[in-house]
Protein backbone atom coordinates (compact mmCIF):
# COMPACT_ATOMS: atom_id res chain seq x y z
CA UNK A 1 0.00 0.00 0.00
CA UNK A 2 1.42 3.34 -0.97
CA UNK A 3 0.07 6.47 0.66
CA UNK A 4 2.07 8.96 -1.38
CA UNK A 5 0.31 11.97 -2.89
CA UNK A 6 -0.71 11.18 -6.48
CA UNK A 7 -2.92 13.05 -8.89
CA UNK A 8 -6.16 11.56 -10.10
CA UNK A 9 -5.93 9.52 -13.29
CA UNK A 10 -7.59 10.87 -16.45
CA UNK A 11 -10.12 8.05 -16.14
CA UNK A 12 -11.08 9.20 -12.65
CA UNK A 13 -11.28 12.80 -13.83
CA UNK A 14 -13.75 11.77 -16.52
CA UNK A 15 -15.83 9.94 -13.91
CA UNK A 16 -16.09 13.32 -12.15
CA UNK A 17 -17.89 14.80 -15.16
CA UNK A 18 -21.50 14.67 -14.03
CA UNK A 19 -24.92 15.86 -15.11
CA UNK A 20 -25.04 18.82 -12.73
CA UNK A 21 -22.92 21.93 -12.47
CA UNK A 22 -22.90 21.64 -8.67
CA UNK A 23 -21.31 18.19 -8.78
CA UNK A 24 -18.76 19.17 -11.45
CA UNK A 25 -17.65 22.10 -9.34
CA UNK A 26 -17.26 20.18 -6.08
CA UNK A 27 -15.64 17.08 -7.58
CA UNK A 28 -13.16 18.97 -9.72
CA UNK A 29 -12.14 21.18 -6.82
CA UNK A 30 -11.68 18.07 -4.71
CA UNK A 31 -9.51 16.40 -7.37
CA UNK A 32 -7.11 19.33 -7.14
CA UNK A 33 -7.18 20.04 -3.42
CA UNK A 34 -8.24 16.89 -1.61
CA UNK A 35 -7.68 13.77 -3.67
CA UNK A 36 -3.86 13.82 -3.66
CA UNK A 37 -3.90 13.60 0.15
CA UNK A 38 -6.13 10.51 0.32
CA UNK A 39 -4.62 7.16 1.25
CA UNK A 40 -5.24 4.08 -0.91
CA UNK A 41 -8.30 2.97 1.06
CA UNK A 42 -9.85 6.42 0.85
CA UNK A 43 -9.16 6.56 -2.88
CA UNK A 44 -11.05 3.30 -3.33
CA UNK A 45 -13.90 4.69 -1.25
CA UNK A 46 -13.93 7.81 -3.45
CA UNK A 47 -14.08 5.70 -6.62
CA UNK A 48 -16.99 3.74 -5.13
CA UNK A 49 -18.72 7.00 -4.21
CA UNK A 50 -18.54 8.08 -7.86
CA UNK A 51 -20.85 5.21 -8.81
CA UNK A 52 -23.61 6.88 -6.76
CA UNK A 53 -26.49 8.47 -8.69
CA UNK A 54 -26.17 12.20 -9.25
CA UNK A 55 -29.19 13.25 -7.22
CA UNK A 56 -28.01 11.30 -4.17
CA UNK A 57 -24.49 12.72 -4.53
CA UNK A 58 -26.02 16.19 -4.46
CA UNK A 59 -27.89 15.34 -1.25
CA UNK A 60 -24.63 14.20 0.34
CA UNK A 61 -22.61 17.18 -0.84
CA UNK A 62 -25.23 19.72 0.26
CA UNK A 63 -25.24 18.11 3.70
CA UNK A 64 -28.90 17.11 3.41
CA UNK A 65 -28.13 13.47 4.06
CA UNK A 66 -25.13 11.46 5.22
CA UNK A 67 -23.94 8.13 3.78
CA UNK A 68 -24.53 5.22 6.16
CA UNK A 69 -21.01 3.89 5.70
CA UNK A 70 -18.59 5.83 7.93
CA UNK A 71 -15.69 5.72 5.45
CA UNK A 72 -17.87 7.13 2.66
CA UNK A 73 -19.21 9.80 5.01
CA UNK A 74 -15.61 10.74 5.80
CA UNK A 75 -14.76 11.17 2.09
CA UNK A 76 -17.94 13.23 1.58
CA UNK A 77 -16.86 15.47 4.47
CA UNK A 78 -13.47 15.94 2.80
CA UNK A 79 -15.16 16.88 -0.50
CA UNK A 80 -17.31 19.46 1.29
CA UNK A 81 -14.26 20.80 3.11
CA UNK A 82 -12.19 21.10 -0.07
CA UNK A 83 -14.80 23.44 -1.59
CA UNK A 84 -13.72 26.26 0.75
CA UNK A 85 -10.93 25.13 3.12
Amino acid sequence: MSDTAVSASPRLRWQCRRGMRELDELLQTFLERGYPQLNDTQRMTFERLLTTQDNLLLEYFMGRSVPKDADTADVVAKIRHAAHP
Partner: peptide, 11 residues
Amino acid sequence: KVFPTRSHTVA
Protein backbone atom coordinates in the same frame (compact mmCIF):
# COMPACT_ATOMS: atom_id res chain seq x y z
CA LYS B 1 -19.59 10.86 -23.82
CA VAL B 2 -20.45 10.20 -20.18
CA PHE B 3 -22.33 7.38 -18.48
CA PRO B 4 -25.95 7.88 -19.67
CA THR B 5 -27.54 8.66 -16.31
CA ARG B 6 -25.00 11.46 -15.86
CA SER B 7 -26.57 13.40 -18.73
CA HIS B 8 -27.77 16.93 -17.97
CA THR B 9 -31.47 15.94 -17.93
CA VAL B 10 -30.72 14.76 -14.39
CA ALA B 11 -30.40 18.41 -13.32
